[in-house]
Simulated assay, not measured.
Amino acid sequence: MKLTVPTLLTLLRILLIPVLVLVFYLPFKWTNFAAAFVFILASVTDWLDGWIARAYNQSSAFGAFLDPVADKLMVAVALLLIVQKHPTPWMALWAAVIVGREIAVSALREWMAELGQRAKVKVASIGKIKTIVQMVALTILLYFVPDKFGDKPSIPFVIGDWMLAVAALLTLWSGLAYLRAAWPALREDARNS
């Protein structure tokens, strides 16, 4: 297996996950900034690895597998950190919707690949919009999360919270779009079974 630049960037994103956790829990005033910065860096590598892979024809099967795994891990860990520091029912619900959809869509893609129809569940524009809203929301929430539960959240944190709610709704919408695209193949497989 040849490691391309996009794959190395994806591996860097995975290596940034423990760095995110570490800086999030450091006992310094600048840790929120550092956590947000690490998350932004990971988000930029996500965009950059895709761009390099397309622009320089460096796509690989391993990279195609690893890229969404790295994305889902980074998002899940960021959500876990935020919910742990701000454990409200709404925040937990948004996190559960986002993580649950990611698991469901990954399973759907795997099943469609087994049927030889993976192309029917490719990333749609609504998924890209969801990703942008989600990444901005998580960056805001990592930076402005209150130091302890019960502290009054700042206005930027509230904006990030609302953006995460929008991201969760877009997550459901895009998940239904994936299911709708896969439904004919799933029904056909059920008939043949």
Rank of each mutant, 00 (worst) to 15 (best):
A53M: 05
A53G: 10
R54T: 11
R54M: 11
Q58N: 11
S60A: 06
G63S: 05
F65K: 13
F65T: 07
P68Q: 11
V69M: 12
A70W: 11
A70L: 13
A70K: 10
D71G: 12
D71M: 13
K72A: 05
L73K: 06
M74F: 11
V75Q: 09
V75G: 01
V75C: 02
A76T: 15
V77A: 03
A78I: 06
I82G: 03
V83E: 08
Q84I: 01
K85T: 04
H86W: 15
P87F: 11
P87N: 09
P87Q: 11
P89M: 08
A92M: 14
W94R: 04
A96R: 06
V97F: 09
I98S: 00
I98G: 02
G100R: 06
R101G: 08
A107Y: 11
L108M: 12
W111S: 10
W111I: 10
M112G: 12
A113W: 06
A113N: 09
A113R: 10
E114G: 15
E114Y: 09
G116E: 08
G116V: 09
A124H: 09
S125T: 14
G127V: 06
K128G: 05
I132E: 00
I132F: 14
I132Q: 00
I132H: 00
V133K: 00
Q134W: 03
A137L: 01
A137W: 00
A137N: 01
L138N: 00
L141Y: 03
L141T: 07
Y143K: 07
V145F: 01
I155Y: 12
P156L: 05
P156Q: 09
P156K: 01
G160D: 07
G160N: 01
W162E: 06
M163T: 00
A165F: 14
A167R: 02
A167C: 05
A167N: 05
A168N: 02
